[in-house]
Structure formats: structure tokens, C-alpha cells
């Protein structure tokens, strides 16, 4: 039976993480485990005083102008026409500017850098800024920026896609892929806001791996743009599997400490989703 495995015994392998990296990761994990034990002890003590519901209640989300009715997220002829969703090649060409726009929008007090695969897969050189997968149903492209402060890290991301349709005019926008851009999170709140005549869906939630997450979705003609922010590091990868491409979310692969709070308020994230600088020139009109 051993012979069956012969092709695998001779396989080429990607570079192994160095012992220094493995040791650093093990130490950090050990340190965090000890810190969590202390934090759990403190949280339990607080819960005994103020009650668990108070601890579980999410902080309020500030909205610039929440619409009481549920407006359609489909492009409306009565408003400024939504920009056309860009082609994947345009996103690719524009990806450096997308990253710059995200970095510029990060509030003072944080450090922001473009997040690339090399950040969590050492020695694997990557040249792209946006990660794009093209399929029969459209494409999806992600540009990620790491947001850091006091040795803790979170992420802000811009996701362009044409793989999912906009919700129908009579549909509840919060029922349609509400976790877009924050996949895997437990959704706590979904609201529709109007900023400068444009409609944005704001979704907040909590991800067991990264803490609080928030997305601002703007539906474009033929696609969408989601800007998301998370307290901890979350990223994407694409891998082939059984003739298809599988999108996956990586949750805090380096066991980094999450930011103490989301780097964006809801209104700032909604405004960022509407920033024309995120759109490639030909589609931003």
C-alpha cells in the first residue's frame, strides 16, 4: 500500500515557516491565552455586578441619516444614476488607488498599510493589490488594508463584485446577502441609510474570530461595492477545488490582537463606500 503514496513523497513543497517564525507565533499564542484567562476572570467579575445583558448589548451605531422606510437598493431613475460596476481589469488597474483611498480614510491615531498575502504567508511573493476571481456568474475583487494601533490590528476592505444581483425593487435589502463583505459574522443590525442621494446598506455584526465587523454596501449598475471594517484581521483567499473556485475567509491567521474598537463609525464607513475615488474613472459617473 505504501507505493500508492510515492507521488506524494516526491512532491515539491512551498517554503516552510522558519523556526523563529513558528516560535514567535507559539509564544504570542501562549501570551494571548494567558491574557484571555485574565480577561475572562475580569469579565466574569464585572458580569456579576452589572449583569450579563449589559455586556452582550452591542454599542449603538451612529447613522448620518437613516431612512425610516425601506428604500429600494436597485438603481432608481429618480436619483443620480448609480455608477456602472467596473470590469475586473479596471479594478485590477485601479487597485493601488483603491488601497490608497482606504488608507487615507483611516482616522488619525491608526497606522494603515496595504494587506497582501505575504503578510500571513511568509515567503510567498504576491504582486497584486486586489485579489480577483472571475467566474461564470461574474467576478469578485477584494482590496485589503491593515489598520493597526498599539500592536493590535484590524482590517478595512473594499469588495467589488458582479457575481450577486441587486435585490429586487420590492425585496427587503437586508434579506439579500446581508453578510456580504463580513461573511461568517453573526448579523446584529441591518439598516438602510441615504447619504447625498445615494443609498447604502449598513450591516453590523460580530465575528467570533475578529470581534465587531461592519459593512457598507452600495449597489452599482450590474454589481456592487462593499466597504467593510473589522476589529481583527480577516482576509480572503481563492483556491481551486473540484473544478470550481472556492472563496474563503481567513480569520486572524497570525493570532494577532484585535483593535479595541472598530476604526470606523457607521457614518464614516457609509461615506467611504460612496467615495468616488474608489471607483475606476470610467465607471464613476
Amino acid at each position: 500500500m505504501n507505493d500508492v503514496f510515492e507521488p506524494l513523497r516526491e512532491m515539491p513543497e512551498p517554503p516552510l515557516k522558519t523556526s523563529a517564525q513558528a516560535l514567535a507565533s507559539a509564544r504570542e499564542s501562549t501570551r494571548r491565552r494567558a491574557a484571555v484567562r485574565v480577561a475572562v476572570g475580569i469579565a466574569t467579575a464585572i458580569a456579576g455586578v452589572v449583569g450579563i445583558p449589559a455586556l452582550l448589548q452591542p454599542p449603538p451605531v451612529r447613522l448620518e441619516a437613516a431612512s425610516p422606510a425601506t428604500p429600494s437598493l436597485s438603481p432608481s431613475p429618480s436619483r443620480t444614476p448609480a455608477p456602472q460596476a467596473p470590469a475586473p481589469e479596471a479594478v485590477d488597474r485601479h487597485s493601488t488607488n483603491i488601497a490608497k483611498t482606504l488608507i487615507t480614510a483611516v482616522p488619525d491615531g491608526y497606522k494603515a498599510t496595504s494587506l497582501k498575502l505575504t503578510d500571513y504567508r511568509a515567503k510567498v511573493p504576491m504582486t497584486y493589490v486586489a485579489r480577483i476571481a472571475v467566474g461564470e456568474g461574474g467576478y469578485r475583487a477584494v482590496t485589503l488594508v491593515r489598520v493597526s494601533a498599539e500592536r493590535a490590528s484590524g482590517v478595512v476592505a473594499a469588495v467589488f463584485g458582479t457575481d450577486l444581483p441587486a435585490p429586487a425593487a420590492d425585496a427587503d435589502p437586508c434579506q439579500a446577502h446581508a453578510d456580504l463583505g463580513i461573511e461568517g459574522a453573526v448579523i446584529e443590525r441591518c439598516e438602510i441609510v441615504t447619504v447625498g442621494g445615494a443609498t447604502v446598506r449598513l450591516v453590523t455584526g460580530r465575528d467570533p474570530g475578529v470581534g465587531r465587523v461592519m459593512s457598507a454596501t452600495r449597489y452599482l449598475r450590474g454589481g456592487y461595492l462593499v466597504v467593510s471594517a473589522s476589529q481583527g484581521v480577516r482576509a480572503y483567499r481563492i483556491r481551486p477545488a473540484g473544478g470550481a473556485w472556492i472563496w474563503e475567509v481567513v480569520v486572524n491567521p497570525l493570532h494577532e490582537r484585535a483593535l479595541s474598537e472598530l476604526p470606523f463609525t457607521a457614518d464614516r464607513l457609509a461615506a467611504l463606500a460612496l467615495d468616488p475615488a474608489l471607483l475606476p474613472e470610467k465607471s464613476s459617473r
Binding site: 461564470e136 480569520v251 491567521p253
Partner: peptide, 11 residues
Amino acid sequence: PWRREYATMPQ
């Protein structure tokens, strides 16, 4: 750490 999200056909 990786979660399966959704699949598209390669092109």
C-alpha cells in the same frame, strides 16, 4: 481558520 464561502467556476 479558513471558512468555505462560495464557489464560482474558473475562467
